[in-house]
Design a protein around this nucleic acid. Structure first.
Lengths: 216, 216
DNA sequence: GTCTATACTATGATAGAC
DNA sequence: GTCTATCATAGTATAGAC
């Protein structure tokens, strides 16, 4: 058996952008193609002309829709963080009051977000640091809020005695990290559906925090 | 209280390169500064002139030491993967024959590797995909071997009945992922030593695989 | 090995016609 | 909104003196 050793930073080829994004026409195509190119080649190695060619327009046309290359990245990073945060927030609102339910809902939303919109997640996570300070603000705030949601739920479970872990911050870092990484390797057809994946990771998370009641 | 929202992709500022790398003098300085710049700004956004200036030489001098910008990245990626693989291999050799001991040793080495050499890990993991095919080969093979080590140990624990998890591949992905992510956020002075960090992650890993004997 | 100088190409962005 | 044409700069890499 031969295994390909070609290294990509993302397994998925799906250029999914959330339905909540109303951008359409050329601007939409630019966004999608920039996302695809940023994910595969990186922001710094992707030129305005690359994006234009992939979008089927001349490079000058890009500037009728976005002020600069950095602005395109900024919009993608904001879309990614907004959608991720929206999903976590919705999940916790529907989860009931038990810490186990809340953590399960958060992890499910976190993992599904990274599995269903891998490309957007890769760009939002891996290229965000290249944005100039003035373009990064809102996304960074959303990111911090999402992290806090996870920490708070774990802390509450520990306080109530239903979780058993000495350091909620470390548990949150581990759970967050394993979910973020999903965007790099997951794609449909590997043998798991998105549901099976998120169910498995939910069990992992509940085990990490030492939950007394872990589903199987 | 005010929290800075500035986003960096790496918390550590330590330009550590493994002792096993014998490169010295100007070539060493080039390697270190390229690593620092690739980690903070990305390969595509770092120019030959940036690396030269940071290394205290003219840009033409770089070519007396490396054939191209891609060759500098290739060397860093190979160093990173070689050191990581070396540590995992050493860990498992010293671990005894029990799956719990072996998994603990692997996770400890994996996490310490990403905590002690964060910058190298970020470059090796995040920029590897930018290498042309002919420069990526050995590193990709080492990566696959490291992954297999983790999977094999978990599978063996399941087969022996000391681990309880339905899918060793998913468990390995989760454990590997949470460790890789450490390189992004960990730095000395946050409140955990590298030892405390790796101990905590070892417990997480043993919990993830459903080990019957988890240390506390 | 390191420098100065430079070739050649690619880059982000703008001007102005349609 | 989209095009052609273009500017100004920055990019990788090389030549040749010391």
């Amino acid at each position: 058996m031969t295994t390909s050793l070609r290294v990509s930073r993302i397994a998925s080829t799906d250029v999914a952008i959330p339905d909540t994004v109303s951008t359409s026409g050329t601007a939409r195509r630019i966004l999608e193609q920039a996302m695809r190119l940023f994910a595969s080649s990186g922001y710094g190695s992707t030129s305005i002309r690359d994006i234009a060619e992939a979008s089927g327009v001349q490079s000058a046309t890009l500037y009728a829709h976005y002020q600069s290359k950095a602005d395109i990245l900024a919009e993608l990073v904001l879309i990614g963080h907004t959608e991720h945060h929206r999903r976590l927030r919705a999940a916790i609102l529907e989860a009931g009051s038990e810490p186990e339910q809340q953590l399960a809902a958060l992890v499910r939303a976190h993992v599904l977000s990274h599995a269903e919109m891998s490309m957007l997640a890769i760009v939002a996570n891996s290229e965000m640091h290249l944005l100039p300070d003035d373009l990064v603000g809102s996304a960074a705030a959303l990111r911090q809020e999402s992290t806090n949601m996870m920490i708070d739920v774990i802390q509450r479970g520990v306080d109530r005695g239903v979780f058993d872990t000495p350091d909620p911050l470390l548990a949150a870092a581990a759970i967050g990290g394993m979910g973020i990484r999903v965007a790099s390797w997951f794609r449909p057809g590997l043998g798991w559906t998105e549901e099976e994946l998120s169910d498995a990771y939910t069990v992992f998370a509940l085990r990490i925090v030492g939950s007394k009641t872990v589903p199987e």
